[in-house]
Design a protein around this nucleic acid. Structure first.
Lengths: 237, 237
DNA sequence: ATGTGTGAATCGATTCACAGCA
DNA sequence: TGCTGTGAATCGATTCACACAT
């Protein structure tokens, strides 16, 4: 019934598959997390109201987001936690194996290699690379550090199909180019630079400096309005 | 549900802006980065076209974003790199000292403590905390790890006004509550959970698992449309 | 009676296109 | 002339409100 293709009358190779709005995709990962918690607690059903409350969104938005997957709820009742969990996971592509290579075995790269959040969510760290000859060959979380010269070879051997880029800003673009050259199409970058990639390569960025600066902006505004209301308070209001 | 809006009913056309749209704030940090590079290279002027190109946005958007700051360009010429850099920095609240406390001295917390991107952008790591008695007192990047029991005391002593939360998901909310209790109003969380905070507290999240899952979604779609076009082109092969 | 699924309305963000100024 | 600054148009994301299934 709701399975009509919202992507329009196009049926070309490029447009294959139903498309979910980016903002909704991002939230689906959050819903999935909450659902996994409910599953672990043995909860069998949730309403959009309850789940929305748990993740801090409006229930109407949650329902609309879920509606992009099809119709998986029961009117008057709610959603089966298990069914919904599986449906979201399948749609996000989490039923297949994702093997992640970490490029950059510095502080951050090593911390990420040991981050349990990857493995518990179905992402296996398959390889780790560095450029420094003093680091190559050393052991990080049970993996031997490979040299970036062997990028293509090691990626192929380990079957890594995603890369986490944890290198200094000044070499990020250069390594990104090498990765693309080696056939990598999905990159999560921690480097504070804008990476240029050809079409067909998906780059996402985690940018701690930007996030702190955004916090600074809001904190400054909060300070200012504090001063402001003090002024108002003293001048009579 | 974010912070209160102190802008009131005033719609002064003269006012070179109180409130900047969130999407624009995020991009201003990126422009600032690019401008700092230009400054380092000794470039004195840029056009919106050049700067937009460098950061991967449309020039009209960049001009609109900058227009929230007021009018700092010269028609027919472009922007003075130095003036623009200072203007953005001032507006983002980066002219004052921000002192960051890192809560959680695990792999990630220690990596962040050593991350040069903080200090080079005007954020000083002022303290680091952990709950583990075996870790408390040890040295991380020149800082002695404090116990979370001393949170309020140490935050006050070090003047930390921002917190980076790098703790396991299951204790994140509890620590968040303690931080809020201790007067912290700006939190950057790496924990993969939705944090509930009272109004007036700003939380931003860096979520590696979510980012990887979004990549997985796109990668799966790419695979699917590949298969699709193979099917279509089955005659060849 | 209850809570989903979804059109319609609203709100915000992006792009267009050009008037206005150096 | 060339490029900024910005209304108007467009596009996407969110919220409202209610018909409809159970």
């Amino acid at each position: 019934m709701t399975t009509q293709d919202p992507s329009g009358p196009f049926a070309g190779p490029e447009t294959a598959g139903r498309h979910i709005p980016p903002a909704a995709v991002a939230r689906l990962t959050i819903y999935l997390r909450a659902l996994n918690s409910l599953l672990a607690e043995g909860v069998e059903r949730v309403s959009s109201e309850e789940l929305a409350e748990a993740v801090g969104v409006k229930s109407a938005m949650l329902r609309k987001d879920l509606s992009y997957l099809g119709s998986y709820g029961t009117r008057g009742v709610g959603y089966e936690v298990q069914l919904l969990t599986r449906t979201i996971a399948a749609r996000l592509g989490l039923t297949q194996d994702w093997r992640v290579a970490i490029v950059g075995a510095g502080n951050l790269g090593r911390a990420l290699a040991g981050y349990s959040g990857f493995t518990t969510r179905g992402f296996e760290v398959a390889a780790i690379f560095d450029a420094d000859p003093a680091v190559i060959g050393s052991d990080v979380g049970g993996l031997k550090v490979s040299g970036v010269a062997d990028l293509e070879k090691v990626l192929a051997r380990t079957g890594a199909n995603m890369v986490v880029l944890a290198v200094p800003a000044r070499v990020a673009q250069e390594l990104c180019d090498k990765l693309v050259q080696a056939g990598v199409r999905s990159i999560l970058s921690f480097a504070p630079v804008v990476l240029q990639v050809p079409a067909g390569v998906e780059v996402r960025k985690v940018d701690m400096a930007t996030e702190l600066q955004i916090l600074a902006y809001h904190a400054q505004r909060a300070q200012e309005s504090e001063l402001h209301s003090e002024t108002h308070a003293r001048s009579g209001q």
